[in-house]
């Protein structure tokens, strides 16, 4: 019995090591086959608002506290998109930063008017005990993110 237990344990560890390289799945299976370029979404956010997309790119940042979002680098320089998942439902570990991801979710575009930004900035400053300069707000702010449902990360 003792021997069997240790043999099973070692087999399990060896198998886990062997299968750890490849792709790691987070959340739901990917269902969209066609990849949408992040640069296309960034260039035409309204066209993609509410649409389900599959994007690919390097993971350039990961939420440090809860693992509840990753930032995926675009096919074009100086662009990235935030892939936000529900807290606790999917948890991205920090070590996937720098690896390549295929991620599926719904594009969400939110627009904030100058008034809304000033109000929120003032509230935030009051809460944090800092100051806020309303003149720093320049026009409508567009916040683009993908509400993530599933991702596959290439593990190396």
């Amino acid at each position: 019995m003792k021997k069997l237990f240790f043999i099973s344990l070692i087999t399990l560890l060896v198998a886990a090591t062997a299968f750890s390289a490849g792709k790691k799945k987070y959340g739901n299976d990917l269902t969209v086959k066609e990849v949408t370029k992040i640069s296309e979404i960034v260039a035409n956010p309204d066209k993609f608002d509410g649409k389900r997309v599959l994007v690919q790119g390097p993971i350039v940042d990961v939420c440090k506290t809860r693992g509840c979002w990753i930032k995926i680098g675009s096919d074009k320089e100086f662009e990235s998109v935030r892939f936000k998942v529900e807290d606790g439902v999917i948890v991205f570990p920090l070590e996937i930063k720098g690896q390549n991801a295929s991620a599926e979710g719904i594009v969400s575009v939110k627009k904030y008017s100058v008034e809304e930004q000033i109000k929120s900035g003032e509230e935030h400053a009051k809460k944090e005990g800092t100051t806020f300069d309303p003149s720093s707000v320049k026009g409508t702010k567009v916040v683009l993110q993908i509400n993530g449902e599933g991702a596959q990360v290439e593990t190396k």
Partner: peptide, 21 residues
């Protein structure tokens, strides 16, 4: 060589290594 490379803005380049940026 880095695992990945990214330019978040015109003045910055990021090199990604396992566990290190």
């Amino acid at each position: 060589a880095p695992q990945n490379y990214f330019r978040p803005d015109p003045e910055t380049a990021q090199l990604f290594y396992p566990g290190k940026t």
